[in-house]
Design a binder for these strands. Structure first.
Lengths: 333, 333
DNA sequence: CTGAAAGCGCTTACAG
DNA sequence: CTGAAAGCGCTTACAG
């Protein structure tokens, strides 16, 4: 039966079963209770009254929420969607929940969200935070454990797990060099981005190692950015373009289609991320696969260690790798 | 100063400021306190002790969590990502938070998640639930208000807000008919999908109204599904293909590219959703725009009404509309 | 106007 | 072994 009005509490069960609330609590929580008749009566009463423990009261009493907060710059960005997805899977099996906040790509919003979340979570994952170092320092002073992704945290007491995009970038440049490209262009990401730094480092190393020339144009992180920045690279007569992300590559591809430049015949294009649609583009996009879901899982694993206290890993770096598809080929003669 | 160990409570502030906890509470919550000296002392003490209200204690005491639960079948699906995004924006301004759970496209998981969330939320949004009617009935009996998206809830006491995809589908068929297509194919979604029902209804109506023939093949909801199901439609010699979603269209497009079938010269393709990448495909995809973010906003608005009690709207239907881009053209002679 | 006190729904040391 | 009681950190009727 569903009781009208007020939800049943442990007190109601205790009264109905003729036992103390302590006993009810023990039965509900599966703690040993010797007298099986008591257990039965409590169970019956609980069923009868459609009892559901008040989770908030429980969390309050126990001092833990079994909830972690996750701050992402943009929920609609497939990169973050995949990170969340990876995290969500593991969280569920660990009986935890996820409070998600979208900062709307506003760096100033991030610290505010950390403060708001920190009271209701056991820990926080800050995905690719764009906040200035001084805010990050503030965040690190909060009592709630925090793990960042894709951001170096200097000597702050924060965990950090990132993807080493330089290895993938080196592979990409190597791939292009092997095809015969001598001058490649890079559609760079946002200036302050930690991820972009890794890609630039890989670009430089790859270029040096394989004797190719590299020209950079800043495109930012959106398809529109790629669309707008592409012509600047074409002018410089590059024969291949590497993009900060698949989204940026998509914008470049759209522009190339408009310009009637055939990919890969007239120009090779390499993306970054390997978002789900990349394999289904025409032509399927050669891109650097970033282990996004794994990033989410590792961030959670590290956060969990931090929450447990004790010595915990402070940093981890995941590898990236080139996935060759059809958007790259030998340069036109 | 940060106190070592235990976090400061209202009691610590009261002691430090020489006032009662009631007064501290009033100051913290901005309730009127006449004696300004008291206010000052409390503020100073709070700052001194780096006091942060215990949000869980507060929620517990007040009996509300200012949190809503959201269950989605797949976080990585750009459709749901956009719905969440729309919701997140409004929630933030309404001082609410969002507990997100991913059911992993497992219908059996949904009711479990509802039960788990219901204790820690003031309300729940169930996005495109795939659960059987009997589970939905169970969910409706929970004390927590629930709003579904894209699902008819029969006479259950649940709110529901959906997107009427039939209007967009009719527009799409009309568009193709105007171009001269006489036989179109539909790559259908999952059999049990409410959204697919709307699209089929629109397809039938559009076909009847404009005298075009329609052939259906089930593709499901993934790009792989579209890739696999496309040839079955080609065999039937359709001159245009409508897809259940942009993701499905993407799979079809990839297959067409492999088959060297030019879009739109040899075959026209229409998607459904208008996900962010649709405009950047080569060719840019003609698709039916679904107001995903608006769906999220409306679901939250409706849930909020239900949470407030009183008479609340039970259903809402949002329109969809065709966006013509470059993937549709006159059929080849 | 401020303070002393009750109480939200649990859990858990402590008695008996 | 079970129960009576204290207490988690707040808020809010109620006194004074």
């Amino acid at each position: 039966m569903v009781t009208a009005g007020r939800r049943a509490t442990i007190q109601d069960i205790a009264r109905a079963a003729g036992v103390s609330t302590a006993t009810v609590s023990r039965v509900i929580n599966g703690l040993p209770v010797a007298d099986l008749a008591l257990v039965e009566r409590v169970r019956d009463a609980a069923r009868e009254l459609d009892y559901r423990p008040n989770a908030v009261a429980r969390d309050f009493r126990r001092g833990v929420t079994h909830t972690i907060g996750v701050v992402v710059p943009d929920l609609a960005n497939p990169f973050f969607a995949a990170v969340l997805k990876g995290m969500a899977g593991e969280l569920a099996t660990a009986e935890h929940r996820m409070l998600v906040a979208d900062s709307g790509e506003d760096p100033a919003e991030e610290l505010r969200l950390v403060d708001e979340l920190s009271g209701r979570c056991d820990g926080i994952v800050l995905c690719s935070p764009r906040m200035p170092m001084r805010d990050l320092r503030q965040a690190a002073r909060r009592p709630t454990p925090i793990v960042c992704t894709n951001r170096s945290v200097a000597r702050l007491p924060l965990g950090t797990v990132g993807i080493d995009s330089s290895v993938g970038m080196v592979e990409a440049v190597e791939h292009l060099a092997a095809l015969g490209h001598e001058h490649v262009g890079y559609l760079a990401g946002p200036r302050s981005s930690w991820s972009d730094k890794g890609r630039r480092a890989g670009l430089e190393e790859g270029a040096r190692r394989h004797g190719v020339r590299a020209t950079v144009r800043v495109a930012g992180s959106t398809s529109d950015g790629g669309y707008d920045a592409l012509p600047g690279l074409l002018e410089r007569r590059v024969t291949a373009v590497l993009a900060f992300s698949d989204l940026v590559a998509l914008g470049a591809l759209a522009r190339l289609h408009e310009l009637d430049v055939d990919v890969p015949r007239d120009l090779s294009v390499v993306g970054f991320d390997d978002i789900p649609v990349a394999a289904f583009l025409a032509p399927p996009l050669t891109t650097v696969n970033l282990p996004k879901e794994e990033l989410g899982r590792r961030a959670w694993a590290m956060l969990r260690e931090h929450m447990a206290g004790g010595a915990a890993a402070r940093g981890a770096l995941l590898p990236s790798r080139l996935v060759v598809r059809r958007s790259t080929a030998r340069p036109a003669r």
